[in-house]
């Protein structure tokens, strides 16, 4: 058994010597270091205080209104709306389409919903909306380019109105387009417009039409200017596009062959026929293949049947059974007058 240990207090050690800081005993460098240390301590304390206060505020806001944390700068009112477009639409149309309220807040805007509003008409192919802090909204529009027009009646409205059709078949109202530019577009025939929501379903086969018109403008601009109607009636069955032209009469293009080559043959055949045949409407068929061009003079009856271009308005009835199958009836077969092998 150990004797009881005498619990005497430990002797005083040097670590118990206080190490006070008395500015009078400090050197200039010491005072500078002390000031820096005090500033650092104050900075750390301030940061800690700010973090703590921020945390308390955040918790309070989270409990009271979590939405305020999602849009922390929701209080900033929307100022300028800047619009950039590669087409004809401007700021006025965009503001109308967006339908923003005057009290709209920049950070509270639902950009996805706004973008959907811009795409509704079909004229805008794509749209980008970007917030520019503090208060700007930048809208960039990518528009569809019309290649043809079509007359259509709205449901419950007997007044036909002109709609535009883009190369991808989208039918849209065509806001902002100049009337003279619209007047230069050929009409579309032989199509059925099917209502889809507020608009129409895309027209099938428009890619071929767009290619034909683009090739015509490039290869034979004079002939292209005379294109009145492009009919899609035989596209599905024969793979042929029938164009009514005020200069030639009727031209049948094969959709599967390059249009530029067909247009070249057309010009040559047209010039040759003009020399050999009397003036009058012709019917040129370029869809025979093998370089064959059928040039026929239309009969008077066929020409009369064609009338002012042979355009018939498509019905807007939703039932396919009630819709006309074609914009115009095909003319009777013309009498052969000559044939050219090119």
């Amino acid at each position: 058994m150990n004797p009881p240990v005498l619990e005497t207090p430990p002797p005083r050690t040097w670590r118990e010597i206080p190490q006070p800081i008395t500015p009078r005993a400090m050197s200039r460098e010491g005072r500078r270091r002390r000031a820096l240390a005090a500033a650092r301590t104050a900075g750390v304390a301030l940061v800690a205080l700010a973090l703590g206060w921020g945390g308390v505020e955040a918790v309070a806001i989270w409990r009271k209104n979590p939405g305020a944390l999602v849009a922390p700068t929701g209080g900033t009112a929307l100022g300028l709306v800047t619009v950039r477009s590669d087409g004809v639409l401007g700021e006025e149309w965009t503001r109308a389409a967006l339908a923003l309220s005057p009290q709209a807040r920049l950070m509270a805007l639902d950009l996805a919903a706004l973008r959907a509003r811009l795409l509704v008409g079909g004229q805008v192919r794509d749209a980008e909306l970007t917030r520019r802090l503090p208060d700007k909204l930048l809208v960039t529009l990518y528009e569809r380019t019309p290649v043809a027009r079509v007359l259509a009646r709205a449901a419950g409205d007997d007044t036909p109105r002109t709609l535009l059709v883009a190369g991808d078949g989208t039918v849209f109202a065509g806001a902002g387009h100049a009337p003279e530019a619209v007047a230069r577009l050929p009409f579309l025939g032989g199509v059925r417009l099917v209502r889809e929501g507020e608009g129409f379903a895309p027209v099938a086969g428009m890619a071929a039409v767009a290619d034909l018109l683009a090739a015509a403008r490039a290869v034979a601009p004079r002939l292209a200017r005379g294109f009145q109607v492009v009919s899609l009636a035989r596209l599905a069955a024969d793979g042929a596009l029938v164009v009514s032209s005020d200069e030639v009469g009727e031209i049948v293009f094969a959709a599967r062959e390059p249009f530029a080559r067909q247009l070249a043959r057309l010009e040559l055949a047209f010039a040759s026929a003009r020399r050999q045949l009397a003036a009058g409407p012709l019917r040129v068929d370029l869809s025979l293949g093998g370089g064959q061009v059928l040039v026929a003079r239309q009969t008077v009856a066929a020409a009369a049947a064609a009338g002012d271009g042979g355009l018939a308005l498509p019905s807007l009835s939703s039932s396919p059974a009630e819709r006309p199958s074609s914009a115009r009836s095909l003319p009777p077969p013309p009498a052969f007058s000559s044939s050219h092998a090119l």
Partner: peptide
């Protein structure tokens, strides 16, 4: 215990352990 005991010797006034 033994270490504390061996170090517990008191010093005169004004002296400090190094």
């Amino acid at each position: 215990n033994v270490c504390r005991l061996a170090k517990s010797k008191q010093l005169p006034e004004g002296r400090t352990v190094i």
